[in-house]
Amino acid sequence: MDLPVMPPVAPMLAKSVPEIPDLGHAEPKWDGFRTIVFRDGDEVVLGSRNEKPMTRYFPELVEAIRANTPERCVIDGEIVLVADDRLDFDALQQRIHPADSRVRLLAEQTPASFVAFDLLAVDDEDLMRRPFRERREHLVGALADARAPVFVTPATADLAQAQEWFTRFEGAGLDGVVVKPPERPYEPNKRTMFKIKHLRTADCVVAGFRWHKSGDVVGSLLLGLYTDDGRLQHVGVSASFPMARRKSLLDELAPYREVDLAGHPWGSWADQSAHPDRRMPGAVSRWNATKDLSFVPLRPELVVEVAYDHMEGDRFRHTAQFRRWRTDRDPASCTYDQLEEPVGYRLADILGGPAPA
């Protein structure tokens, strides 16, 4: 491979802001795997956010990129998976599998798509120092004839439309809105873009915690919500605490630690084969099989209010943020009924039309 921009490249990042800034360029925020595509003729490399290649996991995209992109190019974008006309991040995660036979099967059963949103190089030209508005123009031109599963992300210069997208597109599984300063160059690993994500709160049962990697302080709280049939479903974790708070949490949780694991709602977590249809708090990490995901059980009597952006299936898509203890809440009242559901929206209506400049 011989390109003007060579792998690996750390992608340019975005920092969270509470409102959509009016900078003249906004895009939907895609919920998938951030990927920089490097193509030199038939040779294709899919670079991930951690700069490790993901090429072997998406053979169907390698073929699609050969068919729909310039002969020599470097494109920043997102690998997504569409199911029932909305994004499905859970299904996308299943694509990361060590067995080649499984990878090939999933490529046929749940094929992925690539949504392009920046062009770093084309032919012999390095575009990274060019302003984004020029890179966007080059991208739209370079992929003018691209067909599914390769797309160019929609974009708008209209703040009102961006605000409408923020509300409507969540129903198709999108993650919010990204705003890009039109005059900025491409700056790897720098948070020079802006992301605006949905923020909601939920009252959850705290049924356990994990130790922090640094020692005897709390690493994360394990959160649960009750289902209609009375099960306490593990829905995610709250984990972003200053070190002093991690120590004080240990004292606050101490009265709830005397519990018989056999009677705990997640007491049988170790037998993952007995729960093929739901995520358990002790399941092996798909991304790091050596990571210790064991937990300290707590009597499920504590209720905490957390902030979250959106759900992915029956769990929080990202780490939830601790807000406050809710001593006034009955744990049994912490059900899925409290969660706000976005209005449905067809993903085809976002990607189906021609890509705007």
Score class of each variant (00 low, 15 high):
H138N: 10
F33R: 00
D124S: 15
A172S: 04
I75L: 08
A254T: 00
G41A: 02
G230S: 05
H25V: 10
F58K: 01
V103Y: 00
A148H: 03
A244P: 10
V150I: 14
D292I: 10
L106G: 00
P242T: 04
E63H: 08
D328H: 02
T167A: 15
P70Y: 09
K195N: 03
G176F: 12
F89S: 00
W269F: 03
L139S: 05
T192F: 13
H212E: 12
P255V: 00
D42T: 08
D126M: 09
E108T: 09
R200M: 04
R56D: 05
D40S: 15
T327M: 07
L261F: 06
R200C: 02
G353S: 13
K197Q: 06
P28Y: 07
Y345D: 02
A202T: 02
V62L: 15
V217F: 05
A162Y: 15
L119T: 05
M193R: 09
R130L: 13
L199W: 11
F151N: 08
L293Q: 06
R104Q: 07
V304M: 12
G208K: 07
F209G: 05
A254K: 13
V140K: 05
E134K: 10
F169H: 12
I20W: 04
A14V: 08
R95H: 01
L222Q: 14
A116T: 02
V152R: 04
D330H: 13
E43P: 03
A91T: 06
